[in-house]
Design a protein around this nucleic acid. Sequence first.
DNA 1: GCCAACGTTGGC
DNA 2: GCCAACGTTGGC
Length: 154
Amino acid sequence: MAKWLVKSEPSECGIDDFVAAPGGVIPWDGVRNYQARNFLARMEEGDEVFLYHSSCKHIGIAGIVKIVRSHYPDPTQFDPQSPYFDSRSSAEKPRWQAVDMKYVCTLPRLIPLDELKSIPGLSDLPLVKKGSRLSVMPVGEEQWQIILHQVQPA
DNA sequence: GCCAACGTTGGC
DNA sequence: GCCAACGTTGGC
């Protein structure tokens, strides 16, 4: 089962929004980057995902969610009222995908970006690379375990 | 609020 | 197909 990481501004959708959502489920839509979309499309039901808080006071990994519905056409691309509307998309040829994610847990402590950057085993993670804007990325099993261990320092 | 880094667009 | 211009991301 694959592991992932997604970025989000907590003012838009943070781990607390998952806690408050009906059934803990939130559709992950509005992704408008091809590389990120391609990763979204590879997510499968049951895959676990780190939720990263960006552009806020406490930047870092805040919790874990999981995929409860794999990719389907992102409805916001068809909605002229939506900021994510894309006139180049059609029902026959949808350009963008969404998945549904469900709350799993809030980490006992948020793991800050600078801490993640300091761990040698994570140097390949796009998240810690300078200037990386990728908002959906795969996390290797080994990387996943390293991050989990980091929650409770020995 | 600033600005470096990035992805996308569009003219050629 | 190249690349300059532009808009956006996201840490600081």
